[in-house]
Structures are given as C-alpha cells and as structure tokens.
C-alpha cells in the first residue's frame, strides 16, 4: 500500500487491507456496502489461514469482478447458479473451502432453486448473500427483495404487492428447512453492526472447516446509486426501514 505520510517510529499497524484482498481497486460505486462485505470475507479468510485452500464463486452483478479483488482461486458462475457450482466443486474436492458471494437478484430470484436445494442438502459450503433490495448493475430494477412502495426503474410508482408480490424472505424460508446449519441476517451500516457481521461471516466459514454444513450470512446492504441516496442516507434507510422488513439476527444456528 503506497504510504503518503511516513508513519513515525513507535506506531503499530492496527488496521489495513487483508492479505486475501488484491491490490485491484474495487469497481463498486462510492459508499456501496459491497466493499465492506468483500473485505469482511477477506478478513475471515486471513483469520482462519485458509487462503491457499479457498475457492470463491463470483456472481453476476456488481460483484462480478470479485475474482480480481481477491487472491484465492475463483470460478465465475452464471446468474443464480453459484450454489450448484459450489456443490460441484465441494463434492469433487471436499478439502477445499468453498464460498459463494451473491446478490439478491442472483440468489433470491433466478437462483432460488439452486440456493434452497443446496441448503436443503446441507452442502458444506458458505454463502454470502448481499441483499440491497434491487438489481444494481443492470440499472436499478425491482428485485424479489424490494420493499413495498419502493421505487425502482421497473416499479416507477413503487412496488405494489398486488402486482409484484411481497419481499421474499429467503433467510426465513431457509431457516425452516432441516438441512442448513447456520442462517443469519446482519447489516453493515455502522461500526457495531460491522463487528457483528464480521463474526457471523467468520462463523460461517468456521462451520465449513468443522464440517457442519450449509451456512448462509445475509447482509442488508445499500445501493446509494440506484436508491438515489447519499451513502449516509442509504445507511440510515437500512437502519430505519429495511431492518423492519428484514429483522436482524440469527434465524437458525445448529450447534
């Protein structure tokens, strides 16, 4: 990391870029929570010392360049298919640590079947589910997770549940199944929540190392660009509105 100000002697580094992240700059928009989530995944990989045995599944969408941001092996999956691809890798080589990183359009719409069935089989994988209630990369269209009344480019007058249905609560659905081990919903809009999300991601990876089965961490995230908000407003929107529809906390935790 190029240092602009020399650090005087007597100081120790307490925070910086994790080793699992490359030097490639993120392509996420300014203030987007994706960047925090990506970093937390890298921190978990660092902390568990598993970089050399981890394979990530990069999604379609805003995190499509995830393989460039991180230093582990990667497979690029088709939209929604990440959990099936992860299943194939993990079954072929159970010694690898396999994680998917998916948005809500990917995981909760086109990939609903792949996600539910991987969870129901109790595949020993880790799923990072970034839920910002919108299709970010394609231009801010309605996602299954979009809140009632929320304006998107395909619900210009707000999502009307009578026309478009209700926000899909994937984590609640998965928590009803016998297969999954750990299902939790977290957020990263402030420091305390980031600390909790970090612990949840760490646990989801540790579960896999211990052979415990399917773990999914849903993270309520922002899309300042398509929500037409500043990053600060977007964070407050998550805290004040989104968490009402999607309550935070563990939905399933089999010890």
């Amino acid at each position: 990391m190029p240092v602009e100000t020399a650090v005087p002697a007597g100081y120790i580094r307490v925070f910086g870029k994790p080793k699992a992240l490359s030097d490639v700059k993120y392509t996420y928009c300014p203030g987007c929570h994706h960047g925090i989530v990506t970093r937390l995944v890298a921190e978990a990989i660092d902390e568990l010392g598993i970089l050399e045995r981890t394979v990530g599944i990069a999604p379609v969408g805003c995190a499509v360049f995830l393989d460039r941001f991180m230093n582990c092996d990667f497979v690029q999956a088709a939209h929604g298919r990440a959990c099936a691809v992860a299943t194939g890798i993990k079954r072929a080589r159970p010694e690898l640590v396999v994680f998917t990183y998916q948005g809500d359009g990917d995981l909760a719409a086109i990939g609903t079947a792949e996600t539910i069935h991987a969870a129901n089989r109790g595949e020993n994988i880790t799923v990072i589910f970034v839920n910002n209630g919108i299709y970010g990369m394609t231009g801010g269209e309605m996602a299954p997770t979009t809140l009632p009344g929320q304006r998107t480019t395909t619900t210009p007058w707000g999502r009307d549940p009578r026309l478009h249905g209700y926000p899909l609560k994937i984590s609640e659905m998965l928590a009803q199944l016998d297969g999954p081990t750990y299902i939790t919903r977290q957020a990263v809009f402030d420091y305390p929540h980031i600390v909790r999300a970090r612990q949840a991601i760490l646990k989801a990876f540790r579960n896999q190392l211990e052979g415990k089965g399917f773990s999914l961490v849903e993270i309520l995230s922002t899309c300042p660009t398509n929500w037409r908000m500043s990053p600060q407003e977007a964070g407050r929107w998550v805290a004040e509105h989104v968490t009402k529809h999607y309550p935070l906390g563990d939905l399933k935790d089999v010890r």
């Binding site: 099936a84 194939g88 690898l96």
Partner: peptide, 15 residues
C-alpha cells in the same frame, strides 16, 4: 440447470 452447473463446478475443480 443445477446438474450442468454442478458439472461446471466439478470440472473446474479438475476432475
């Protein structure tokens, strides 16, 4: 759809 994507994963893993 899932089956072929599992093949994709396993083939990517080199088997």
């Amino acid at each position: 759809v899932a089956a072929i994507n599992m093949v994709y994963g396993a083939a990517a893993a080199g088997v």
